[in-house]
Write a protein that binds this DNA or RNA. Structure first.
Length: 387
DNA sequence: GATCCGTGGGG
DNA sequence: TCCCCAAGGAT
């Protein structure tokens, strides 16, 4: 049995245990994966749709895009975006030649927009140097947006190189296998050492996929399916009956709740005012309707009028309310209230934004919007269409 | 090392 | 309705 004292490195006893069980873990994992794993992921297939053999090389561009999309995003969510992206930007050259707006527009709805900006930046940088995408982990890790896990996932998928990964799935599997008594990030290099020791020398393509599939399909966050797990007899969390309590979570920070007033400003021609957010930071480079947080003592209509004065220098009459809805970010909960507004005085100018634009409502669909504002675009279209 | 960065589905 | 949280990286 494995000793239960943990530091940031394995003890000699723990390492000996790991070396002893590693062959059984690997063989039972790959055996399970052959029967139950996901072997039809499109970026893991040869261009003609066949399963690659150990020595086959896969095209790196689609794998790169897929792995970046899958950062902090579920497979079922990312897949349709990946197909659309490949149709819109089929290769590195077409991506490098695209505008920031086109790139963000294609990414709209997927979230974490800095990922799209970094894909674009990498493509431009490579194209300017006359280089193609690297296929080794070290080379990939130099690209913006790629850390060790994503670079390793790409390299192993493309060339079956011996590069293990340590994503959220793998961390959860290891935390339970070892019954690790602290949040996984406190494990330091311990988990990396473990995946390196486990790694099959024949390559990491199927090994990485199998380990992620085990986490996603069996060793699930909420309700793990231990009766179908190939590692059940080795799992210390299962042995203690504490698999549902692991991995240990950090205490979540309290989430502030904010009311946001938004102005849908129509001019005398029927054009609507939008502004483009600053290039970096939250929702960087996306477009939105002007607005902001409600302050104490304000009605929502007063909030909208004040924000429009401050943000774009317009004096407006705010009302009626077009729609109201809740929207949650990871660290904030917002209630949006959108007001139809008409201009009383002033010329719209960018104060806190990159630029402002008056746009025909039917052209709004050509601009990238955050999900909450895309919802307001939809509501405006229905409002105008029904009138 | 703690924090920031989106969105949508599931329990 | 509410909370959880996902194929992480950069600062």
């Amino acid at each position: 049995m494995m000793p239960g004292k943990w530091s940031t490195a394995f003890t000699q006893q723990q390492k000996a245990w790991l070396r002893r069980v590693a062959p059984h873990l690997v063989s039972s994992l790959l055996n399970w994966w052959q029967r139950h794993g996901r072997r039809d992921l499109p970026w893991r297939l040869l261009p003609d749709g066949r399963q690659p053999g150990p020595d086959d090389l896969l095209p790196v561009y689609p794998v790169w895009v897929a792995e970046v999309m899958l950062q902090q995003t579920r497979l079922t969510v990312a897949l349709p975006f990946w197909r659309r992206w490949r149709s819109r930007f089929p290769d590195l050259e077409s991506l490098a030649a695209a505008s920031r707006q086109e790139v963000l527009h294609c990414w709209q709805g997927l979230g974490y927009y800095v990922r799209a900006r970094r894909l674009h930046e990498a493509a431009i940088r490579l194209a300017a140097a006359g280089r193609s995408l690297p296929t080794d982990r070290a080379g990939l890790e130099q690209l913006p947006g790629l850390g060790r896990t994503t670079a390793a996932a790409i390299a192993a998928t493309v060339g079956n190189s011996p590069d293990p990964i340590l994503d959220g799935n793998v961390q959860r599997v290891l935390a339970r296998l070892l019954a690790f008594p602290a949040p996984p990030r406190q494990a330091g290099p311990l988990f990396w050492t473990m995946v390196e020791l486990l790694l099959d020398h024949r390559g990491a393509r199927d090994f990485n996929q199998a380990l992620m599939d085990l986490g996603a399909l069996v060793c699930r966050p909420r309700a793990p399916l231990c009766q179908g797990c190939p590692w059940q007899s080795h799992c210390h969390a299962y042995g203690k009956g504490i698999q549902r309590q692991l991995p240990v979570r950090q205490a979540p920070a309290p989430i502030p709740r904010v009311m946001v007033g938004v102005g849908i400003v129509l001019d005398h021609r029927g054009k609507v005012l939008i502004g483009q957010r600053q290039p970096d930071g939250l929702l960087g480079g996306l477009w939105e309707f002007p607005g902001g947080k409600q302050e104490p003592g304000e009605t929502m209509a007063e909030t909208v009028a004040r924000e429009l004065q401050e943000e774009v220098g317009l004096t407006v009459a705010a009302g009626p309310e077009l729609l109201r809805f809740d929207h949650a970010y990871t660290h904030r909960r917002l209630t949006f209230a959108a007001y139809l507004c008409r201009v009383l005085a002033g010329e719209a100018r960018p104060v806190a934004s990159q630029q402002v634009a008056w746009v025909w409502p039917r052209d709004l669909r050509h601009y990238p919007f955050p999900a909450a504002h895309a919802r307001m675009v939809q509501a405006l279209g229905e409002h105008l269409g029904g009138a």
